[in-house]
Simulated assay, not measured.
Amino acid sequence: MNIDLSHWNVIKRVFAKSQRSNMHANIASVSKEGMPNITPIGTVFLNEDGTGFLFDSFSQKLAENLKQNSNVCISAVNSSKIFWLSSFIKGQFDDYPGVRLYTKLGELRLATDQEKLLVNTRIRSLKWTKGSKLIWSDFTHVREFKVDNYRWIQYPSMMDKLT
């Protein structure tokens, strides 16, 4: 499926708001035994053309599951309390509360300098913390993906303006 550019721009906007409110997106994969696994990853980036990449440093189960099945669902939900409270007060969402991206994750490869710059920009505000130094100091490898399909997270009775 080729995603229309106008749809992709909406997807990117909703995804960005979701990542700002959560600091991560969830990636669902399935093991060889058929067991589902959710991996939260805060370093998912969407490009301009229906593709993206993520830094993969600590996701042991995800990496293991990808050996059998590279199909994943990347879910991003806007958990901003202000977004939800204003939506409930109005009885209407002004934007999609989230999106699911269906894709296949590619093989692990070395990150480019541009990709490293993007991740360092994202984590800059917390770089001074001990936790940041412990978990975000060694971003070297990424997995690329092309979005094959998507599905909005919807609550139909509050979606009139968006459908």
Rank of each mutant, 00 (worst) to 15 (best):
I38L: 15
G34Y: 04
L54F: 08
S57P: 02
I74F: 06
E64W: 11
M23R: 11
S70I: 07
D49S: 11
Q60C: 00
I27T: 11
L54Q: 07
Q19L: 15
S21C: 10
F15T: 05
S29I: 09
Q19V: 15
F45K: 11
D56W: 00
T43I: 01
L46V: 03
H24Y: 14
L62V: 03
V44D: 01
K17Y: 13
R20F: 02
V44F: 05
G42L: 03
V72C: 12
I38D: 01
N37T: 13
D49I: 05
K61T: 12
S59W: 00
K17R: 15
R20T: 11
T43V: 09
C73M: 15
R20W: 01
T43E: 04
S21W: 04
A16S: 13
N47T: 10
T43G: 00
F15W: 04
I41D: 08
H24E: 08
D56E: 13
Q19N: 15
F45S: 10
S21H: 08
T43K: 10
M23V: 10
P40W: 06
S57F: 08
T43Q: 13
M35S: 10
L62D: 04
Q60L: 13
M35Y: 12
S59P: 00
L62F: 01
K32T: 05
L66V: 10
K67P: 06
K17L: 14
M23K: 10
Q68L: 04
Q60A: 09
S70C: 06
T51F: 07
Q68S: 15
I74G: 01
D56Q: 07
G52V: 09
Q19S: 10
D49A: 08
N22D: 03
A25Q: 06
N37M: 07
P40Q: 05
G42V: 08
S57H: 14
S21N: 05
D56S: 15
R20L: 13
N47F: 04
E48Q: 12
A63R: 11
F58P: 01
S31L: 03
E64H: 13
S29E: 10
F45V: 13
S29D: 09
E64K: 14
K32L: 03
D49M: 03
D49Q: 09
